[in-house]
Design a protein around this nucleic acid. Structure first.
Length: 828
DNA sequence: ATAGGGTTAG
C-alpha cells in the first residue's frame, strides 16, 4: 500500500460491520481513533486473510505517521493472527512492538497476547523464551503454555506446568482443564485424571461441555470405560464431540459393539455426524466385520457430504478390506485424490489379507513410483505377506531393508520378521532375530512362543515361558494359549489340562481361543468326549462360540458319530444367524456324513453357492462313505465339467467310490485323467483303489500295475492282490504275497494295524477277526485311534451301502460298541 | 475436547 486516502465521512459502527473497507471509510482526524480501534477489533475477530493483512498494513502506516495507537490494538490484531494461524503476519506485528521500545513492549497485555499467539502457532521455542521473561504471568499465559505442550504431545511438561501454575496460586479455568485432561489421557495417568476430575467438581466446571467431554475422552483413553460412561450419563448438555468421545472410547478399547450402539443412539437423538463420527464408526464396524452396518455408515457419510476427505476414505478402505470386499476397497482407493501412505498401506494390507502376494508387490512398486516411501507399517505388511506365502527370499529382503532403515526397534516390524522366519520353517533364524533385539515386549515373546508351540516343541516353549517371567514380562492369555497348544501338539494332554487350570490361578482368564485350542487338540489326540465337555463348559462360562470353535466341535461330533450333538450345533448356527461360509459348511457336511445323515449333508452342501474344493471333497467322501457311489461320481463329473480342478484328495474319494461300485472302466479312466489331465501325482492310496478294483473284478492286470508302480507296495496293495489271487485260485502267488506281508515285521503293532486295515479294506472280516485274536494272544496293544477307525469306517460302508437293513442308530450303536471293545482291548 | 493403517494364540 503506497499512501492512505482517508475518506471524509466519519464511520458508523454499522458501516464497519457491513463493509469494512478502510480505504473508503476511514477519516483522518485523531478523534476517530475509537473508530479505528473498533475497525481493528472487527477485523481481528472476523478476520479473513486479505482483510487482516490490509488492517495490519493500515496499523503500521498509522504507526509510522506517529498516531497514538494503544497496546490493545496490537493485541487485537495479534488475536486476528491467532484465528488465522498467520505466523508471518504476527511476527511482523511482534517486530514492530519490539521496535517501539521497552516501555511499550513491557506490558502484561501485550506479553500475554504474544505468548498466546506463539503458543497457538505451535512455536514452542518462542513461547518458552517469552514465557520465561514475562514478569507478570496470568491465567491466560499459563493456559497458553500448557496448551502448546499438550498439543505437541509433550504431556509430562504440560502436566508439570499445570502443577506449577496451581502452586503459584493460579486457578485453572475451564479452558486449561481440557488440555490437562488430554495430557492425563495421553500418559494413561488415570489417577491424576481422577484428581483433576475432583478439581473440576470443586471448581464447578462439571457442566461445561468442553470439560466434561474431555473427561469422557480421558477416562476412555485410560481404559476406564465405566467412569467415561458415568460422566457421559450425568451430563446435562452434550454435543457431537461428547458423543464422538464416548464412541471413540469404546472403539479404542475393543468394545466395538458398544461403539456401534452409541452411534445408533446418536442417530436417534438427531445429532448431526461429523467426520470424526464417521471415522470411528467405520473403524468399529470394520473391526466387527459388520458389512451391513459399515455399508450403512458409507451411505450416511455420502448423504452428509463427509465421504470426500482422506481419513474417511482410508476408513472405508479399511472397512472393505477387513470384510473381504476387495473390489469395493479398490474402488474407494482409486477415487481418492490425494493418497497418503496410510491409504496405500491399507490397500497393501488388503492384498496381504487376501494372500495375493503378486498384487501386494505390484502395489508396493506402484507406491514407490508415486513418490511415496515405505514406512514401518508397509514393512510389517510385506513381512506378513512373505510369511503367509512362505516366500523366504522376499522375507529376507524385507528383513535387510528393515535393518538398513533402522526399523527393527519397532516391535510390530520385529515380530512380523520373527513370525515370517518361523512360518518359513526357519525357527533358528527366528530365534536369532529375537535374541538380537535389545528390548522385547509381550507381543515379541508371544511371537516366539507361538512359533515353538506350532512345532509342538513344548520343552522350548515352556523354557521361554519361564524366561519371559524372569525378565519381568507377565504372560497374558495368548502366552498361556501357546503353552497349551505346544503340549497338545506334542501329545501331552495331561500337561495341557494342568496348564489350563493353572492359568486361572495366575489371574489369566481363558478365552474363546483357549477353549478352541483345547477342543481341537483333544479331538486330535483322541479325547473326543473331553473335547465336547470343554465346548459345553465354554458356553456355560458365557463365551460365545465362533466359526473356528464350531468347526472344532463338529470334528469331535464326527469322530464320535454323535449326530445328536452335531444337529444341536447346526441348530445353534442357524439360530445365531452365523454366516455359513465354505469352511463351516465343509465341516458340517463332513459331520452329517460321518454321523449317518447323508441327506442333511447334501442339503447343507446345496446352500453354498460358490463351492470350494474342500467342500466338494467332503461331499464326495460323504457319499463314498454311505455307499452312494454313483452320487459321488456324479458330483465329481458335474464340478469338473464346470471347470473345478480336483486335487489328490478328490481322486482318493472318487477312486474309492469306483472301487466300491466295481466300476473298472470308469475307475481306470479317472485314474488316467488324474495323471494326464490334472497333473496330480498318484499316491499309494490311488494305486490301492485301482489295484483293488482290478483284483476284485478278477483282472490279472492288477499285478502288472503293481509291478510298474513307483512305490514299494504296502499292506493295502498286497491285501488287494491277495483278493485277486483268490479269484484266480493262484495259491502260490498268494503264499508269496503272504510272506511279503509277514516281512512287515508283524510283531510291530503298527504293522498289525496296517495288515488289519488291508483286510478290512477288502471286507475280509474273518481275517480281521483272526488277526485281532492273534494280537490278543501275543499281547500286542493297539493305538485306539488307528485300526478301529479304519475297521469301523469300512464296517460303516458295508452296512450303509444297502447290503444291510440296519437303521442308522443301530449302526452307530455298533460303532460305539466296537470302539468300547477296542478301548477295553487297549487297556488290557 | 473427539478421528484413519501394521505385529502374537485356534
Amino acid at each position: 500500500m503506497s499512501s492512505l486516502q482517508f475518506p471524509t465521512t466519519p464511520l458508523t459502527p454499522s458501516s464497519i460491520t457491513k463493509s469494512p473497507n478502510p480505504q473508503t471509510q476511514l477519516t483522518t482526524p485523531k478523534h476517530h481513533q475509537i473508530l479505528y480501534n473498533s475497525y481493528f477489533k472487527h477485523i481481528s475477530i472476523s478476520s479473513k486473510q486479505g482483510n487482516l493483512q490490509e488492517a495490519v498494513n493500515i496499523l503500521l502506516e498509522l504507526d509510522s505517521q506517529h498516531f497514538e495507537i494503544g497496546a490493545d490494538v496490537y493485541g487485537d490484531l495479534l488475536q486476528g493472527c491467532v484465528y488465522d494461524r498467520n505466523l508471518s503476519l504476527g511476527k511482523q506485528i511482534h517486530s514492530r512492538i519490539v521496535k517501539k521500545g521497552e516501555s511499550f513492549a513491557k506490558n502484561d497485555y501485550i506479553e500475554t497476547k504474544l505468548v498466546v499467539f506463539y503458543a497457538k502457532c505451535d512455536q514452542l521455542d518462542d513461547v518458552y523464551g517469552l514465557f520465561g521473561r514475562v514478569v507478570e504471568k496470568n491465567v491466560f499465559s499459563w493456559a497458553a503454555v500448557i496448551g502448546v505442550y499438550c498439543r505437541m504431545g509433550l504431556f509430562e511438561k504440560g502436566l508439570l506446568t499445570f502443577v506449577e501454575m496451581v502452586e503459584s496460586g493460579f486457578e485453572g479455568d475451564n479452558f486449561v482443564i481440557p488440555n490437562v485432561l488430554k495430557a492425563c489421557g495421553g500418559l494413561l495417568l488415570v489417577g491424576f485424571g481422577k484428581g483433576v476430575h475432583g478439581y473440576v467438581i470443586k471448581m464447578g466446571f462439571e457442566d461445561c461441555v468442553f470439560v466434561a467431554s474431555s473427561l469422557v475422552d480421558m477416562y476412555g483413553k485410560c481404559g476406564a470405560l465405566e467412569d467415561a460412561r458415568k460422566v457421559f450419563d450425568k451430563m446435562p448438555e452434550r454435543n457431537v464431540v461428547t458423543w464422538n468421545s464416548l464412541m471413540v472410547s469404546y472403539s479404542q478399547n475393543g468394545m466395538y459393539e458398544e461403539a456401534v450402539r452409541v452411534f445408533a443412539d446418536m442417530r436417534k437423538e438427531d445429532v448431526q455426524p461429523t467426520v470424526v463420527t464417521m471415522v470411528s464408526f467405520l473403524s468399529a464396524t470394520a473391526n466387527l466385520c459388520a458389512v451391513e452396518e459399515g455399508k450403512q455408515g458409507h451411505s450416511i457419510a455420502v448423504l452428509n457430504g463427509l465421504d470426500e476427505g482422506n481419513i474417511v476414505g482410508t476408513s472405508l478402505i479399511n472397512l472393505y478390506s477387513k470384510t473381504g470386499l476387495v473390489k469395493d476397497a479398490e474402488k474407494v482407493f482409486r477415487k481418492m485424490v490425494k493418497k497418503d501412505v496410510v491409504a496405500w498401506n491399507l490397500m497393501v494390507s488388503c492384498y496381504v489379507q487376501e494372500q495375493d502376494i503378486e498384487k501386494t508387490l505390484n502395489l508396493c512398486s506402484d507406491m514407490l513410483l508415486n513418490g511415496l516411501k515405505f514406512d514401518s507399517v508397509t514393512m510389517t505388511l510385506i513381512a506378513t505377506g512373505a510369511g503367509d506365502s512362505q516366500n523366504l527370499k522376499l522375507g529376507k529382503e524385507t528383513h535387510c531393508q528393515c535393518i538398513r532403515n533402522n526399523l527393527m526397534s519397532d516391535m510390530a516390524v520385529a515380530s512380523s520378521i520373527i513370525d515370517m522366519y518361523a512360518k518359513c520353517n526357519k525357527i533358528h533364524e527366528a530365534r536369532r532375530v529375537f535374541s538380537s533385539l535389545q528390548t522385547k515386549d509381550l507381543v515379541l515373546w508371544n511371537t516366539l512362543l507361538a512359533a515353538y508351540a506350532e512345532l509342538g516343541s513344548s520343552g522350548e516353549t515352556l523354557k521361554l515361558f519361564y524366561e519371559m517371567q524372569l525378565e519381568g514380562i507377565p504372560p497374558n492369555v495368548i502366552s498361556w494359549n501357546s503353552v497349551i497348544l505346544a503340549f497338545l501338539k506334542n501329545g501331552q494332554v495331561n500337561e495341557a489340562m494342568v496348564s489350563f487350570s493353572e492359568m486361572e490361578s495366575f489371574g489369566v482368564e481363558a478365552n474363546l481361543i483357549t477353549h478352541t485350542i483345547l477342543v481341537t487338540g483333544l479331538v486330535q489326540n483322541g479325547y473326543v468326549d473331553e473335547a465336547i465337555t470343554i465346548f459345553v463348559e465354554m458356553q456355560e462360562k458365557g463365551i460365545k462360540p465362533n466359526i473356528v470353535s464350531i468347526v472344532g466341535v463338529l470334528s469331535a461330533c464326527k469322530n464320535r458319530a454323535s449326530l445328536q450333538l452335531g444337529k444341536a450345533i447346526h441348530g445353534y448356527v442357524l439360530r445365531h444367524e452365523m454366516h455359513m461360509n465354505s469352511v463351516l459348511a465343509t465341516s458340517m457336511v463332513d459331520m452329517y456324513a460321518k454321523c449317518g445323515n447323508i441327506i442333511q449333508s447334501r442339503k447343507v452342501f446345496d446352500t453354498i453357492l460358490v463351492k470350494q474344493l474342500p467342500l466338494i471333497n467332503a461331499m464326495i467322501s460323504g457319499y463314498a462313505l454311505h455307499g452312494c457311489h454313483s452320487e459321488a461320481i456324479a458330483i465329481f463329473r458335474e464340478l469338473t465339467n464346470e471347470g473345478v480342478n480336483p486335487d489328490s484328495i478328490t481322486f482318493t474319494n472318487v477312486l474309492s467310490a469306483c472301487r466300491h461300485c466295481g466300476l473298472i472302466n470308469e475307475g481306470v479312466e479317472i485314474f488316467v485323467s488324474m495323471v494326464t489331465k490334472y497333473d496330480v501325482a498318484p499316491t499309494m492310496e490311488h494305486y490301492g483303489c485301482v489295484v483293488s478294483l482290478l483284483s476284485k473284478c478278477g483282472k490279472f492286470e492288477a499285478f502288472r500295475l503293481v509291478k510298474n508302480m513307483p512305490f514299494k507296495p504296502d499292506s493295502h496293495i498286497l491285501g488287494a492282490l491277495l483278493v485277486s489271487c483268490r479269484e484266480h485260485n493262484e495259491i502260490d502267488i498268494a503264499k508269496h504275497l503272504t510272506e511279503n506281508l509277514s516281512k512287515l515285521e508283524p510283531d510291530n503293532s503298527g504293522n498289525y494295524t496296517a495288515l488289519s486295515n488291508a483286510y478290512a479294506a477288502n471286507e475280509m472280516w474273518d481275517e480281521v477277526s483272526d488277526l485281532r485274536s492273534l494280537m490278543k494272544e501275543k499281547g500286542i496293544k493297539k493305538n485306539p485311534g488307528c485300526s478301529w477307525v479304519q475297521i469301523g469306517k469300512e464296517l460303516h460302508v458295508f452296512v450303509a451301502s444297502d447290503r444291510s437293513n440296519l437303521q442308522s442308530d443301530e449302526i452307530y450303536a455298533m460303532l460305539a460298541l466296537l470302539r468300547a471293545e477296542m478301548m477295553a482291548y487297549v487297556s488290557l
